[in-house]
Simulated scan of single mutants.
Amino acid sequence: MRLRIALLCVALPLLLWAALPVVSIGNPAEEAARLEKRIDSARERVESRLGTERDLRGDIRSYSARIDRLEGRIGELRGRQQRLQGDLDEKQAELSRTQTQLREERARLVRLRERLKETRQALSGRMVEIYKMGDPGLLEVVLNSDGFAQLLERGEFIARISEADRRIVEEVRRAREDAVETEKRLDALEERQVELRNAVRTRRDQVADTKGELIGTRVGAQQTQEGKENALEKVGSERRDIQEDLEAMEAQQEKIQAKLRAAAPGGPIRRGSGELIYPTNGTFTSPFGQRWGRLHAGIDLASAQGTPIRAADSGKVVLRAFTGGYGNYTCIQHSSSLSTCYAHQSRFGVSNGQNVSKGNVIGYVGNTGNSTGAHLHFEVRVNGTPRDPMGYL
């Protein structure tokens, strides 16, 4: 029993220790530097996608205008199609009338041919009777004719036959002439029918081909536009996701900066009588004004290497780069005219385009550029012109 109690006393503290949460003990400054790189990368990706979105919107506007033009042409073609349809309807009506006339003429020709057949049979019977009557003069006229049609045209034949026979002959002639004229009209009507059918077919095909081409072009443009819109939506969604991550990282960075400010060796924020705070608590070593024959455009505050530098006021980082004699140089725009600049930093603490609040750490004191020792060169500029910072601190 005693052994069990002893083992329990040893094991219980170990179990309680194992159950405690693990606390991160990472270096906040290193974490801030890593986070800064990720923020820079995220900003670049956001800008890239914003550029792509602008390009896609321009393409979409271009395709929309093109589709509108195609719709206009299709509308014009519809009007032309309606006019052609009216013309086609007239041609179809004319074709229908022509076909009706053809049927009537064909029926009339059948009747005429039947009538011609009957009158010829009647005339043939009379010729047989005349022959039996033995009129040699009339027989000679008949024998000297090249055919039945020529016989009907010979005056000698007409003069020798009776009035009744002349009526038969005249009826045969008229029936023959009517039949010939009817055949000519039939031929003309059939040719006209072919012409009308070809005209109708040609115009219909022209309209259909043109309309099909325009509609195909419009469909292609619409599909391309839809593809661009889908791409725009995808890029926009990616950009929004990146922006959300960026905002989260910036919030995290602000928390880390707050921790760094709280633990910074630079001490508490130093305030003067002006609207700006001192960027460091360093020793004042050089004033604004002429120095060594030229303008010293700011004040110098000596501090230990790596001392945090704070933003003198809230604003947006408009410059963050190594800049000649200034070394690592950061400028913050506070208003449309007022800006502050920080030179000779050992390293940066912010990114281009980042919004900062008064007192945020924006960098660290260093000795980069034309510098003879670790210090901060601090400038105040109004519309880009250097002013004495002491008038604002």
Rank of each mutant, 00 (worst) to 15 (best):
V142S: 01
S162T: 15
K117C: 09
D146M: 06
Q99R: 14
I161E: 00
I130C: 05
R154V: 04
A179R: 01
L102H: 02
G134N: 09
L186H: 02
L123E: 02
L186G: 00
G147A: 12
R97P: 01
T98M: 07
L151G: 03
R108F: 08
P136N: 14
R113L: 13
R173C: 05
V142P: 01
R174A: 08
R185Q: 10
I161Y: 00
E171D: 08
E118D: 11
R174M: 09
E183Y: 03
E118R: 10
E163M: 11
M127W: 01
R166N: 09
S145E: 02
R176E: 14
R115L: 15
Q150C: 04
E153F: 12
E183P: 02
N144Q: 14
Y131W: 10
D165V: 06
L102S: 03
K117M: 12
A164M: 10
Q101H: 11
R120W: 05
R111E: 11
E105Y: 07
F148W: 09
A175E: 05
R111A: 13
A175H: 05
I158E: 03
T98K: 04
S96N: 10
E105F: 06
R103S: 11
S162D: 15
L116K: 05
Q99P: 03
I161F: 00
I168M: 09
E118C: 03
E105N: 10
F157I: 03
V128G: 06
T182C: 09
R160V: 04
L116M: 08
E170T: 11
Q121R: 11
E183R: 08
S96E: 10
E156P: 02
A179C: 07
E183K: 06
R108D: 03
I168W: 00
E129S: 14
R160F: 06
E183W: 02
V142D: 01
E156Q: 13
I130H: 05
E171C: 05
L186Q: 04
L138R: 02
G155T: 10
A107Y: 10
D178N: 12
E156K: 08
S162C: 09
E170P: 00
L123D: 01
A175L: 14
E105K: 09
Q150M: 09
R185N: 08
D146K: 12
E104D: 08
E181C: 06
Q150F: 06
E114I: 09
A164Y: 13
R173N: 06
M127F: 07
R126Y: 09
L116D: 02
A122G: 07
L112E: 02
R167F: 13
R176K: 14
R111W: 02
L116S: 08
L138F: 06
R173V: 15
F157E: 00
E129W: 10
V110I: 05
S124T: 15
G134A: 07
A122V: 11
R167V: 08
L116W: 03
